[in-house]
Design a protein around this nucleic acid. Structure first.
Length: 606
DNA sequence: TCGCTAATAAACACGG
DNA sequence: GCCGTGTTTATTAGCG
C-alpha cells in the first residue's frame, strides 16, 4: 500500500518529478511503474530502481521518499512475516498435537524450523502474487536493503526445495503436506495445480490462523514413487507426474502430460510468475552453491586435502565458526553440496563415522546428546590419536562428537596421562579439556564414562594413596580390539596361551601400535602427554617381545606406569602424521590392513 | 531377521 | 540428605 501510495504520488506529480530532457520522455514515469506493475503489480526491483535512477525520471527527493516508503513496507513485511510465522507455527503445532501426538511433533517442528525461513523467503520472492512487496536480490553494486535476507538457509535439500516450491506455488501441498495437513486454500485447480490461488499462501495462512477449521487432512497424493513408467522424455515430466513446480499432476502418459502442460502451464501470468520465482530460486541456489564450493575449497585447503582447484581460502578458517559440514567429502569428488553422502568405498576420514557435524557449531541447532544416539563404530576410524592429533584444535573448539567409543576415549585419556592412571575426575577433565563436545550434558556422558569403566575389563580400578585411580589393561583392551578387527574370538581366546605372541596377539599389538604410534606427535597439544601413549605401547610390545611372552601375572597397574623405552623410530611418521589425504581413499578393510602394515613397519624398524 | 556392540538411562549401593 | 563414585540392568539403535 505504501508503495502504491508512492506510485500514486508519482503519478499525481508527473511534471515536478520529471527531469527528462526530452518532452517525449514525459510518459516515462508512467511507463516504468506500469511496466513494473505488469511484471509484478507492486514491485519495483532494484534493477528497475536503478533504471529509474539512470534515466533520471525521479527527483532525488522523490526517490528518497520512495525508498523510505519501500523500507517502511519492508518493515511491515517483516512484521507480517514474523507474525505469520508465529501464527503458522502455533497452528502447526496445534494441528500436529491433534494428529501426531508424541514426539513426532518435535521432529516435524524441527523440520519446520529449517524450512520455514526459506519458505518465508520464497514467499518474499513470490511476493507480487501475495500482495507483499517483493525485493529480489540487489542489483550489482547495490547494497541490499536492511532486513533483506535473500540467502536461502544453508543445507536446503532438493526435496525441501521442492516442498518449498509447493509452498510458494500453493500446489498440492501448501507447505504442510508433509504432515498430512492441507490448507483449504482458495486454489481452484481441481488437479491441485495451484491455479491462481496457489501463490496467495500468506493470505491463506493468515486467514487460516483465525479459522483452523479450514484445514483438513489432505488426501495425500502419491508422489513420484508411483507411475514409474514414463512415456516420453521431458524435463518437466517424470514418474508419471508433471514436474512443473508445485504441480505434480498425475499424467497417465506423455501425451496427456503434453496436453496438461499446454493447458495448465501455458504462457500466462501465473506461469511467467512461477518461472520468475524459479529463476530466483535457481539464482539463489547458484549463489549458495558457489559459496559452499568456496567453503569446501577452503576446508580442503585447511585440511591439506588436494583441492581440485588451487584456490586458497580468503582467510584462515576458524574452526569454531567455519566448520559447518562434515569432512568426509572425498577429495576427488567434485565440490558439490555438502551433504554429498560418502560412498562405502570412500570412508576416507574418521569423520565418516562421525555421527553428525552440527551445521553451526555450538549453536542452538546442535542436537542434544540424547537425540544423537549413534553407533560409534571405530571401524571406519583411523587410530584414535592420529585422528585427534591433527584435529586437536578442532575437537577442542568445535562442538563435534569425536567418532570414538567411550572406551577408546577413556583409554586414551589414561594413557595420555603421565602416570598412565587417572582418577575418575581426571578422566572427566580430560574429556572436557580435549573435546568441546563433552562440555555439555555432563551427567549423560559422565554416566557413560563410569558405565564403561565398570563394564569393560580393560579398565582396572586401582586403589591408590590418594584414592582410586583407573588404569588400562592393555592386553584386555587389545583383546577387545582384536576381536573387533579380526572378528574371530577364537584367536583372542588363545591369547593368554599364545604368549609367544602368535599371530593374533601380534596383529593385535601391531594394531595397537598403529593406533598409538604416529599420533600425537603431530600436535603440540597432545604431544606432551601423548607421546606417552606411544611409549607405553612400545613398552607393551617390548615387554612381550623381549621376554618372548607376556608376563603371566600381568598386572596393568604394575605394568602401566613404567617401562618406557625411548624409541627413536617413527620419527618419519611423526613428520608425516596420518593425514586426511593418505586416508582419503582407504576402505575400512584397507584401514585395518594399514594398521597391520604400520605395525609391521614399526616392528621392522625395531 | 538376528546377534553383537555401543550408547543411554536409570536404579542402587556405598562412603565421605 | 547430598554428592561423587562405582556397579548393574534394561532399553535402544546401528551395523554386519
Amino acid at each position: 500500500q505504501a508503495l502504491q501510495a508512492a506510485r500514486q504520488l508519482l503519478l499525481q506529480q508527473p511534471g515536478s518529478g520529471l527531469k527528462s530532457p526530452k518532452s517525449q520522455d514525459k510518459q516515462r514515469p508512467l511507463q516504468v511503474p506500469v511496466s513494473v506493475a505488469m511484471m509484478s503489480p507492486q514491485v519495483i526491483t532494484p534493477q528497475q530502481m536503478q533504471q529509474i535512477l539512470q534515466q533520471q525520471v525521479l527527483s532525488p527527493q522523490q526517490l528518497q521518499a520512495l525508498l523510505q516508503q519501500q523500507q517502511a513496507v519492508m518493515l511491515q513485511q517483516q512484521h507480517l512475516q514474523e507474525f505469520y510465522k508465529k501464527q503458522q507455527e502455533q497452528l502447526h503445532l496445534q494441528l500436529l498435537q491433534q494428529q501426531h501426538p508424541g514426539k513426532q511433533v518435535k521432529e516435524v517442528s524441527k523440520h519446520k524450523e529449517t524450512t520455514e525461513p526459506f519458505l518465508l523467503q520464497i514467499q518474499s520472492w513470490a511476493g507480487p502474487q501475495q500482495g507483499l512487496l517483493s525485493l529480489p536480490g540487489p542489483a550489482p553494486g547495490q547494497a541490499a536493503l536492511p532486513g533483506q535476507t535473500l540467502q536461502p538457509p544453508a543445507g536446503l535439500s532438493p526435496a525441501e526445495l521442492q516442498q518449498l516450491w509447493k509452498d510458494v506455488t500453493g500446489g498440492n501441498g501448501h507447505g504442510m503436506e508433509d504432515n498430512g495437513i492441507k490448507h483449504n486454500s482458495s486454489s481452484t485447480g481441481s488437479g491441485g495445480t495451484g491455479t491462481g490461488g496457489g501463490l496467495d499462501l500468506s493470505t491463506n495462512n493468515s486467514s487460516s490462523t483465525t479459522s483452523s477449521s479450514n484445514i483438513k487432512h489432505s488426501e495425500k497424493k502419491p508422489r513420484s514413487s508411483l507411475h514409474e513408467e514414463s512415456g516420453g522424455t521431458h524435463p518437466l515430466y517424470g514418474h508419471g507426474v508433471c514436474k512443473w513446480p508445485g504441480c505434480e499432476k498425475l499424467c497417465e502418459d506423455f501425451g496427456q502430460f503434453l496436453k496438461h502442460l499446454n493447458s495448465e502451464h501455458a504462457l500466462d501470468d501465473r506461469s511467467t510468475a512461477q518461472c520468475r520465482v524459479q529463476m530466483q530460486v535457481v539464482q539463489q541456489l547458484e549463489i549458495q552453491l558457489s559459496k559452499e564450493r568456496e567453503r569446501l575449497q577452503a576446508m580442503m585447503a585447511h585440511l591439506h586435502m588436494r583441492p581440485s582447484e588451487p584456490k586458497s581460502s580468503p582467510k584462515p578458517l576458524n574452526l569454531v565458526s567455519s566448520v559447518t559440514m562434515s569432512k568426509n567429502l572425498p577429495p576427488a569428488s567434485p565440490p558439490n553440496l555438502p551433504q554429498t553422502p560418502t560412498t562405502p568405498t570412500a570412508p576416507i576420514t574418521p569423520m565418516a563415522a562421525m555421527p553428525q557435524v552440527p551445521s553451526v557449531l555450538g549453536g542452538a541447532n546442535v542436537p542434544s546428546m540424547g537425540a544423537m544416539r549413534r553407533r560409534h563404530s571405530d571401524k571406519y576410524s583411523m587410530p584414535l590419536s592420529s585422528e585427534i592429533a591433527p584435529n586437536y584444535e578442532f575437537y577442542k573448539n568445535a562442538d563435534v562428537r569425536p567418532p570414538f567409543t567411550y572406551a577408546t576415549l577413556i583409554r586414551q585419556a589414561i594413557i595420555d596421562s603421565a602416570e598412565h592412571q587417572l582418577t575418575l575426575n581426571e578422566i572427566y577433565s580430560w574429556f572436557t579439556r580435549t573435546f568441546a563436545y563433552f562440555r555439555r550434558n555432563a551427567a549423560t556422558w559422565k554416566n557413560a564414562v563410569r558405565h564403561n569403566l565398570s563394564l569393560h575389563k580393560c579398565f582396572v580400578r586401582v586403589e591408590n594413596v590418594k584414592g582410586a585411580v583407573w588404569t588400562v589393561d592393555e592386553v584386555e583392551y587389545q583383546k577387545r580390539r582384536s576381536q573387533k578387527i579380526t572378528g574371530s574370538p577364537s584367536l583372542v581366546k588363545n591369547l593368554p596361551s599364545s604368549l609367544g605372541y602368535g599371530t593374533a596377539l601380534n596383529a593385535s599389538l601391531q594394531a595397537a601400535l598403529a593406533e598409538t604410534s604416529l599420533p600425537l606427535l603431530g600436535t603440540p597439544g597432545l604431544m606432551n602427554s601423548g607421546s606417552t601413549a606411544h611409549e607405553e605401547l612400545n613398552g607393551s610390545l617390548d615387554h612381550l617381545d623381549t621376554n618372548g611372552h607376556g608376563s603371566p601375572g600381568y598386572s596393568p597397574s604394575a605394568h602401566m606406569p613404567v617401562h618406557v623405552k625411548e624409541e627413536p623410530l617413527n620419527m618419519d611418521d611423526d613428520e608425516c602424521p596420518m593425514s586426511l589425504v593418505t586416508t582419503a581413499n582407504h576402505s575400512p578393510e584397507l584401514d585395518d590392513e594399514r594398521e597391520l602394515e604400520e605395525g609391521n613397519l614399526s616392528e621392522d624398524l625395531e
